[in-house]
Structures are given as structure tokens and as C-alpha cells.
Write a protein that binds this DNA or RNA. Sequence first.
DNA 1: GAGTGGTCTAGACCACATC
DNA 2: ATGTGGTCTAGACCACTCT
Lengths: 259, 259
Amino acid sequence: MDVAGHSGAPAYQRIAATYRNKIISGELRPGDQLPTEHEITELFGVVRQTVRSGLSVLVTEGLIVARRPHGYFVRQREHMVYRPQQKSRPRPATPEMDRFSQQIVAEGRTPSQLIEVSLVQAGPELAERLQVNPGDTIVARRRVRFINGEPTNINDSHFPLDLVRDSEIMSPAYLSRGTDQVLAELGYRQDYAIDEIFVRMPTPDEIHRLNLGPGTPVATHYDTGYTAAGQAVQCTVNVLPGDRHKIVFERQWQDDPGN
Amino acid sequence: MDVAGHSGAPAYQRIAATYRNKIISGELRPGDQLPTEHEITELFGVVRQTVRSGLSVLVTEGLIVARRPHGYFVRQREHMVYRPQQKSRPRPATPEMDRFSQQIVAEGRTPSQLIEVSLVQAGPELAERLQVNPGDTIVARRRVRFINGEPTNINDSHFPLDLVRDSEIMSPAYLSRGTDQVLAELGYRQDYAIDEIFVRMPTPDEIHRLNLGPGTPVATHYDTGYTAAGQAVQCTVNVLPGDRHKIVFERQWQDDPGN
DNA sequence: GAGTGGTCTAGACCACATC
DNA sequence: ATGTGGTCTAGACCACTCT
């Protein structure tokens, strides 16, 4: 079972297991420093490369981070709550902020955004969801959201070009009433949405935009909106770093009470 | 931007970027074999350890797998659809299978399960959700679900001991009508649930139970059920390997149509 | 037996932040 | 200047599977 703990296991796995157990058991707490590579070398009687192999296991597991030139530290994580359900609830009549910003301000933190609008060719993933052909031109409204100056998630909205040509959505300015409202004004009222969540390791581009550390997986949330007639009007790709978010929603029971 | 592509980047990053780009662009397709470590050594003019560093980046990104003694191959993934919403919908009157098994059979595949029931002490995560004190004894009904003999997800249900003592839930047998129904018969009808999804790298135990490859993150889905009075009656922890699942749910709009 | 990846040793030089 | 982790070389032996 606990193969890595066996004395027959490779040395680097024993090193990883040793410090993993100390972290899980609470002996090492978030923010605590591990021994240096040099010290672990002497503790286990192996060369530095072997120590590095062991620690790299814990780095890719997201348990520790290297802070040069200080050493390795137990990682701490703080999850912001992400509620996909709330997107389909009414907003205040005259909103000054989108829902993300409202939530952050309510938590006493400072939100900011970087918005970038461009015309791109639809890849297969987006083409299928937006009911267009791969390679068709679509509008991408790319946004990185920050909390207290730290990049926190990616929110890239995509629209079929025909729907939003010459509308406000084409401007890289902040739309306080939200793109859904603009779409509704253009005659494309969103009636229902399909949410898909994938879990994977980030691409180098995502690592760069979100300033992700090694061993940080991401959730990709595809939110595809449709009119009552079933026409796709937008597909938003949210990329949520696993160490900064938890996804929350609620369900009411629909059982027959006589059951 | 594409730092790893710069000629100034470390050799192992250039190697990783080279094959990552070939995979993303489609030049290398799922199932294709990469050159051997020895061949890449000659292609880049570096020693084997450096090649291994580069390839290990792609392994931990989940893009490739090592199949000894054949070589490295581009990984292929197949996502089963996971619908947390369906848990709160009525089932057929006389179910012979749980929802998971129903779906798998409908897809023409063969489900199976390993069930294990035990009494455990609640850790802080479960204690908080089940409204008990940390260290209190709770009932854990642990289940690994298989498709065609391959482990696919973990489904561990937890109950306060007082609620289910001496009930069928304590037996490690398959309950075709579901534990929710058994709880309802005991007088604890579930009225609503809160779902929380975390994204992280798996623990060694999860790697073992689910036979996970390196670079595979997991989603942890906490499904906590409450009676109408707000009493927590169960907390189920689903562990979903990222390379085998996508999470899907739907939303109807709740806007005021006059908006 | 040949070839694959898995592990390990014993060195070396570097960039970087702190003292 | 010191000490940290980051990268790299040049070897070695091993377990495993295919032929």
C-alpha cells in the first residue's frame, strides 16, 4: 500500500514520503520551512540530485514551494468561492460592478481587470459550442481578473461575429451591466446555459497569465449560453487555478415526497 | 511570452517546449510515440539527464506517458460525463442500479464496484460538514467504481453514527435503491444539498486506489445533504480523475423578462 | 541479448537575494 | 561574500520486456 514508505523504495521516494507525512500530519504547517537540500543530503546520506528528485515530487504535488535563496516552504492555499449558479440570477437594477467585483469588494479586497478584445479564428472546441465552423472568425473578449494585484482567474468570453458586430462588446472597456445584458439589448436574450468543467494541468500560456506555481492544476469552466430557440450566443471560458478557488453550488431536492 | 522557446532558455525547457508544441499543433497525435531519450540526446546535443528533465515536464503536465521499455507516448484521454445535478432528480420506482451504473450500462460499458464500510474518526473537513466534533466516530462507506475493470472514481459516503446505527448502510453490500432512500426510510429525508468542488493533485493513496498516472490532477466533489430542518445527514466525497471526467450541469435563466 | 526507461553518484558552474 | 536553489555533465547499475 504505502509503497513509498518501504525501506525498499527508492531513496527519492522515501524522502518525498517523509516530508509529505510531516505535512499531512500537521508536524509541518503551512508556511513552515523544510531543511535545505544540503541538510537533507546529510540526513539521508544521498547526493543532492537525489534529494532534489524527492522534493520535486512534493513540488509537483503542490505541497511545497521553493523560494530561492531561502529554501523550501510548506505551501498555503486560500480558496475564493466560485459560484457558477449565481450567473443566472437577477442582478441589481443599476449595477456598477459585475458579480465578480461585487463579491471581492464585499470581502474587503480590491478587484481589477485587464480586458483585451480581438477577432480570432474559432478552434474546434469553441466552434462546436458556438455552432459555427472551425476557422470562422469570432469575437474574443479576454479578461484577467486580479485581487489585490494578484492574478486570480481568466475569463475569456467568445461571441459569433454576426451577433455583436459594431456593438459595445467590441470595445475593450469595462461593461458594468455585463455582456449578457448587452446581448439581450441586441435581441439575443440568454435563456439557458450548459456548464462544463474540466480538470487538467495548465498550459504555459496560462501559467504565465495567472502566475501559477508548479504543481497547480486548473479547472476550466465552459459556460455556453443559448436563447430560448437554442441558438448559442456566447461561450465563456473561465480558467480557475486550483489553489485559489473552490466551486460551490446548491441543489434543491426534486423527489416525489411520497417516496 | 513563450519563454521556453527562447534560445536563451535552459535546454530542458527547450526540449519540453519542442514536443509540447508538436502535441498541441497536432503534429504528434494521441498514441504517437516520441523519440527515445537516447535519440533526443543526440538531437539536442545534451546528456540524458537533461533530456529526462525536459520530458518529465511534459509527464507532469499530463501530456505524455512513459511505457517501459517501449518509450514515451502522447497521452489520450476520454472523458466520462459527471452530472452532479442529476443526484437530486427522481429515480425509477424500482431501480436495479444506482445512477452511475445506469449511465455506464447505457453507454455499453460494464460497471463494477468495491465497497468497504468502516467506522472512522471524523477529520476536520468531514466534521465541519457533518456538524459533529472532530474525532467523533462516523460511518464511512467507501467505494471505488470501475468501468470495464479500470478504476474510474472514488465515492466515499459519510454519515453521523447516530443516524445509521444498525441500518443497512452499515453493511458493505450493494444498495440498489441508494443510501439516500435508506436515510429517508430512517426518517432523515434529504431536502437540499451543497456541492463544493476543489481541484488539486492527488494524494499517494488516491494515486494507488485510482491507478493514476503522473500529471493527473483530480477534482474533489463534496456533496453534503441536509434535511429541511438543516440537519446534515450525509457527506459524500467524490474523487474524479481529471483525465477521465468532465463535470456537466445546466442552468435556466431566472432574470426578470422585462429587463 | 538488446534496448527501454528508472535510479543514483560525484562532481561543476550559474543566478539570485540577502547579509 | 555567502548560501540558496537551478541547471548540466559524465559516467554507472538496475528492472523490465521484447525478440
